[in-house]
Design a protein around this nucleic acid. Structure first.
Length: 560
RNA sequence: GUCCCAGUAGCUCAGCAGGAUAGAGCAACAGCCUUCUAAGCUGUGGGUCGGGAGUUCGAAUCUCUCCUGGGACGCCA
């Protein structure tokens, strides 16, 4: 519900069109402190126009305004502060949620539009690191949020399954590899080979050349190279799928870089046709204004990351006809995406307007980037194990009779990890800290889940039956902040999508949880006198918490 | 050297299409379970919003500049 509009239309009558409707919308704000009201209008702009003190203007507006639709209106220090009619607003907000249920917050603004989201995209033959977790979790949440606004979403896992690194790996395997060992624990053995390769290459620089040659054999489709590559890929994918299953994440496409191998000649042809290709130091590049040139082909004729991304972009447009195409990829690749979009623009692909890089900060270890090559890496699977174990321990201490302990511990432990990643602005770097990630108190995922479980428990004990004809007259002071936050949920979803920022939702859920827990602590809910009304509030809180958690990719256990 | 991020309480962060006394959580300390799940609630202490200049009636928020940290800068992805 947009109660701003009522305020504005009353306001407009008093200021003779000095400020346009659209500007008024922007100027209305939330007072910093609850005791100042629910909405505020600052009169400082008007002071210039009327050449009067804002304090006097505010007082005059209050005098002239029809305040009957509000609880009260007052002028304080140059502001017109409005206190909404709590009963009316409560009734509207709760009835609305009661009717819409988990559809609450849906807006059809993107109905009929298609969005592709490229996220997760781990590298084959390397462990799934904490860094990939960010892309996975942010991308997944953005996909859910986009769907909530009506988008048809195509989830793409652009696997890093091609490139010189596989040449290196093939060389390493042929020199030092052992089939049996790789079969036993593929990822860690392949990683060990990869690390060894880089160690040896420091002593013997010809190894890097050998790696490039091996990749060339791969690109040319040589049988032995292809067989090894396919084997590495299959084994890796098996491992990744375990993690996706734990996180409850799925994709519509697993087309990785290799998939575009036979689609790159066409890209190069188009570039040549448009006279965009230039020879430079033996390589083939596209010159760009304002950015360094984009490398299309190496001296030895093999392709690069950018070439494959061009092919992928064109493929996605031709197959999905996307209106928007997001790339949830680390901030360190910002330049690459600027170049990519610029090249597409030069190719007259006007649909590139809909493409966007959604960068995020890095997970640092001791203030530095983690490097796979040096084996400085934290494994996601181990972190998940620890989180789940800690959740089990908590359940045994706090709720030993709980059924399905294992399943709930999984939901809570993983919830803690996901929420920890999503609650802050995505561009912030995160210093890796197991301790922070495994905290279950305060502003955490389990705190929100716990609040949901509490709400559910009340509904169960009170044998609540939702009834949209309930007349909600909540006299409790503490209910009001809860209702205001429930009302903000649709806005926070819209903002999360507009800014590609799931933390907007996480923050709202925290605020709502805090307000509800305060309500819970001060108001006795299961009493005879306002039980149905109070439980209706509890029920709507439960709906919003559950739906909000879902949009973050988290489960909402009913008990914990 | 050039470009991109970021710098707010001891720690982690909110707030940033300018607005009222800069807010949370953690940690510390003090309280609250014979009553709806204490993974909770209440209270206390804690700040030159990196420094400086500018725009403005008004700047944590916008501009410039400097400092600090991180990242990226043609044959990796």
């Amino acid at each position: 519900m947009d109660f701003k509009k009522e305020f504005i239309s009353e306001l407009e009558k008093t200021i003779d069109g000095v400020i346009s409707y659209d500007n008024l919308v922007k100027m209305i704000e939330k007072p910093k402190h609850d005791n100042l009201g629910d909405l505020a209008f600052p009169c400082f702009e008007l002071a210039k126009h009327y050449r009067k003190s804002p304090i006097i203007i505010a007082e005059e507006i209050v005098q002239e305004m029809d305040v009957s639709t509000f609880e009260r209106v007052e002028s304080v220090g140059g502001y017109v502060n409005v206190f909404l009619n709590k009963e009316k607003v409560s009734q509207e907000v709760l009835t609305n949620i009661l009717n819409e249920k988990n559809q609450y917050g849906y807006s059809g603004i993107a109905e009929g539009k298609t969005m592709t989201i490229d996220y997760s995209s781990p590298n084959i033959a390397k462990p799934f690191s904490m860094g990939h977790l960010r892309s996975t979790v942010i991308g997944n949440s953005l996909a859910l949020i986009a769907e909530k606004q009506g988008y048809r979403v195509i989830r793409i896992n652009h696997l890093g399954d091609w490139g010189t690194q596989f040449g290196k790996l093939i060389v390493a395997y042929q020199k030092w590899g052992n089939e049996k060992k790789v079969k036993e624990s593929p990822i860690s053995e392949l990683l060990a080979l990869y690390i060894k390769f880089h160690e040896e290459a420091e002593k013997d620089s010809t190894l890097n050349d050998q790696g490039r040659e091996a990749f060339k054999r791969l690109e040319n489709g040589e049988r032995e190279a292809i067989q090894l590559w396919r084997w590495f890929r299959d084994e890796s994918l098996k491992e990744f799928n375990k993690i996706y299953e734990l996180l409850g994440i799925r994709f519509d496409s697993y087309h990785g870089e290799a998939f575009y191998n036979d689609k790159m000649d066409r890209v190069v042809d188009i570039l040549a046709e448009k006279n965009l290709l230039i020879e430079s130091e033996g390589a083939t590049v596209v010159k760009l204004e304002g950015y360094p040139p984009c490398l299309i082909k190496k001296r030895d004729g093999t392709t690069l990351y950018a070439t494959r991304d061009l092919a992928a972009a064109i493929y996605r447009q031709e197959n999905y006809h996307f209106d928007q195409s997001l790339y949830v990829v680390g901030h360190e690749q910002s330049l690459h995406f600027k170049q990519l979009f610029a090249v597409l623009k030069k190719m007259d692909c006007d649909w590139q307007e809909g493409m966007a890089h959604i960068p995020f900060g890095m997970i640092l270890k001791d203030g530095k980037k983690m490097s796979t090559r040096k084996g400085k890496i934290v494994l996601l699977e181990e972190v998940i194990q620890e989180a789940v174990q800690l959740a089990v321990k908590n359940i045994e201490g706090k709720n030993p009779n709980l059924l399905e302990k294992e399943e709930i511990a999984k939901q809570v432990g993983i919830g803690a990890i996901i929420f920890h990643d999503l609650k802050n602005y995505r561009l912030n770097d995160i210093e890796f800290s197991l301790e922070d990630m495994l905290t279950f108190e305060g502003e955490t995922g389990p705190y929100v889940q716990y609040t949901h479980a509490r709400a559910t428990s009340l509904l169960r004990k009170g044998e609540f039956q939702p009834d949209s004809s309930t007349v909600v007259k909540l006299k409790d002071e503490e209910a009001w902040p809860v209702i205001k936050l429930l009302n903000q949920f649709p806005d926070s979803i819209a903002k999360a999508l507009a800014e590609y920022d799931p933390s907007q939702i996480a923050k709202l859920l925290l605020e709502l949880s805090k307000a509800f827990n305060k309500y819970y602590a001060t108001v006795k809910i299961l009493t005879d006198d306002q039980k149905q009304q109070r439980l209706t509030l509890v029920y709507t809180v439960k709906i919003v918490l559950k739906e909000g958690l879902r949009l973050l990719g988290m489960k909402a256990p009913t008990e914990m």
